[in-house]
Amino acid sequence: NKFNKEMRNAYWEILHLPNLNEEQKNAFIQSLYDDPSQSANLLAEAKKLNDAQA
């Protein structure tokens, strides 16, 4: 299933973003579980936030 793979990839990438705190990571990961079809968008948002907090 495409979403499972996308979701897993997004999950791991978000988990390893160095500039997000636990609360931010948890919020993105919760959103992933709530709507796996948004994995790519959530990952993009997480990366933007990560870069902004660098």
Results as ranks from 00 to 15, higher is better:
Q53E: 13
Y33S: 02
F3E: 13
K48I: 09
E6N: 04
D51V: 09
N19S: 07
A44N: 07
A52P: 05
P18I: 09
I14R: 00
S31L: 08
N21Q: 11
N4P: 13
K2I: 08
A27S: 12
A10V: 04
A46E: 00
R8T: 05
L49Q: 14
L17S: 03
S37Q: 06
N4Q: 05
A44Q: 11
L17A: 04
E22K: 12
A52L: 09
L17Q: 06
L43E: 03
K2H: 11
N9R: 15
Y11E: 04
I14K: 00
N26S: 13
D35A: 12
E45W: 15
Y11S: 03
K5Y: 03
S31D: 06
N21K: 07
P18H: 07
N21I: 10
Q24D: 05
A54V: 10
N4R: 03
A27F: 13
F28G: 01
E6W: 02
E45L: 14
S39N: 04
L43F: 05
M7A: 13
N19V: 06
R8L: 10
A10Y: 01
N50E: 04
A54Y: 14
N41M: 13
K2N: 12
R8N: 08
S39L: 12
A40S: 09
L42K: 10
R8V: 05
K25H: 06
Y33G: 01
A27Q: 05
L17M: 09
F3Y: 07
A40L: 12
D34P: 04
L17G: 00
A52W: 13
L15F: 13
K47R: 10
A52T: 10
L49N: 04
R8W: 15
N9M: 15
N9I: 14
E45R: 15
E45P: 01
Y11M: 13
Q24K: 08
H16L: 05
A10R: 04
I14N: 00
Y33E: 04
N4Y: 14
P18R: 15
Q30R: 15
K25A: 12
P36R: 04
K2S: 11
M7T: 06
Q30K: 13
Y11I: 14
N1F: 01
N19Y: 11
M7K: 01
R8A: 12
M7N: 01
L20T: 00
K47Q: 05
L32G: 01
E6D: 11
A10F: 04
E23N: 12
Q24I: 03
N1Y: 01
L32K: 00
D34N: 12
E23T: 07
L32P: 00
A40I: 12
F28M: 05
S39R: 13
L20Q: 00
K48N: 09
E45F: 14
